[in-house]
Design a protein around this nucleic acid. Structure first.
Lengths: 234, 234
DNA sequence: AATCTTTGCTTGTATATACAAGTTGCCTGT
DNA sequence: ACAGGCAACTTGTATATACAAGCAAAGATT
């Protein structure tokens, strides 16, 4: 029933930070000091400190000590989820339509984004994802065929590009940018929105161990989509 | 020079997962098995496994074992940063203009968002943040005065609301929503954009231990702002 | 006075060990 | 055949210990 000892120590540290006993950048007790104070071994005190470092509450430096992290650096996170999971998670019907699936030489901007030579062949797919019959995301994706040679042979009605890529080239790093845009007439008609209606556009670039795998441009109708995020800090 | 032993074990596990030796939901060797295989103690093998669990690569269950996590659940994160830090981080000039700072009774929507009674007095501030003289964010914020009674007495030219709130009511949880919108004429003129130009709008709600602290609506000109995120998974 | 060395404190890595607690399957007694 | 309990294996918590490595300040040497 009782909380483990390292949790007690974590709570003690957090409580003291929150009530201002130790302010920003102040030094907190060392591992040995905490071990003495709580009557536990150094490794147990260390675990409490280590977990708070992972949570971004503390920072530590070998030889110097452990300090309260600057509060403003605790930036919150916004979760970007797989659209298929997201739609199904809402209990709605998920559908996809494959509009394009072709091989073409990279122009300058694609070559830079994928880290390949200009003119190198890359895979391009364009998919329209729908929720309960209404479009929610237009996905334009460029894939590095050197790293994922079988990409264009896949059936994306069975498995989304994101799911397939996650399997064959588990990503180790991702970068996102989000912006608000107005789209051209063709895109507007695909998304079934009025021209002039704002859209949320996410640029997503993913790396695997061996290089840049894929570059995707995800466009959501502003009227029909919200990107939601949640982070528990404690 | 050599990597620590627990890092070697992590790399070995990740490599085997990536090349498909252990697929989704497959069981990976137990702590004791890894300890034997790598000629280390169980605690060292345990550390490698624990860190991979934290990274979302593995899941474990007491009594059963450790398993490869489902790959699709590795959602990426998008970092939402403090606008002042973000502007200064780009090496640009940051300026703020306080447009409103007043006390008013909560209407229905504000009352729900802040978790107070309709008609309860809440603080409202409207700030315009600028980068190199051009507006980049219009911040409309409602604050629960029951939790932060001195909010309206602050000088937000010295310290942004976000910074002040971080100090007096360290937040334990935050929720975000991002959408694309077109704004009214008044807002457009404040942001110095054409009417009809899309904007990125972030709804940000923060909790402290004692309740909902603040509800902010952050509006960025779509032409001048991108929300950037980055996550290292390894 | 300036510089090098030592000493002590800090965190980082690693081991060996012990017991607790959850899960599974086998095996025994009825 | 079934139920109960036992044994084996798993992860979870905790301790005691050892040495490595980074840092800072006091002290010794030049």
């Amino acid at each position: 029933m009782a909380a483990p000892k390292f949790v007690e120590i974590k709570q003690h540290l957090i409580a003291n930070i929150e009530r201002g006993v130790w302010r920003e950048h102040a030094k907190v007790p060392s591992e040995n000091a905490l071990a003495g104070e709580f009557g536990c071994s150094r490794m147990t005190a260390r675990r409490a400190l280590t977990e708070l470092v992972e949570q971004g509450v503390l920072v530590r430096s070998q030889g110097q000590g452990t300090f309260v992290a600057s509060l403003k650096s605790q930036g919150s996170m916004l979760n970007i989820r797989n659209i298929a999971d997201e739609v199904r998670g809402r209990g709605h019907d998920y559908q996809v339509q494959v509009l394009e699936q072709l091989r073409l030489p990279a122009d300058a901007s694609v070559a830079i984004a994928l880290g390949v030579a200009v003119g190198a062949e890359v895979g391009q797919t364009r998919l329209l994802h729908s929720e309960d019959g209404r479009p929610v995301q237009l996905e334009l994706r460029f894939v590095n065929l050197a790293l994922v040679p079988d990409y264009l042979e896949q059936d994306f009605y069975r498995q989304t590009p994101h799911e397939y890529l996650s399997q064959v080239a588990p990503l180790t790093e991702a970068h996102h940018e989000v912006e608000a845009v107005v789209v051209d007439a063709k895109t507007a008609s695909l998304l079934e929105i009025d021209q002039g209606e704002p859209c949320l556009r996410i640029h997503r670039r993913t790396w695997s161990r061996s290089g840049t795998v894929s570059f995707a441009r995800l466009t959501h109708p502003g009227s029909r989509y919200r990107l939601g995020g949640h982070l528990v800090m404690d």
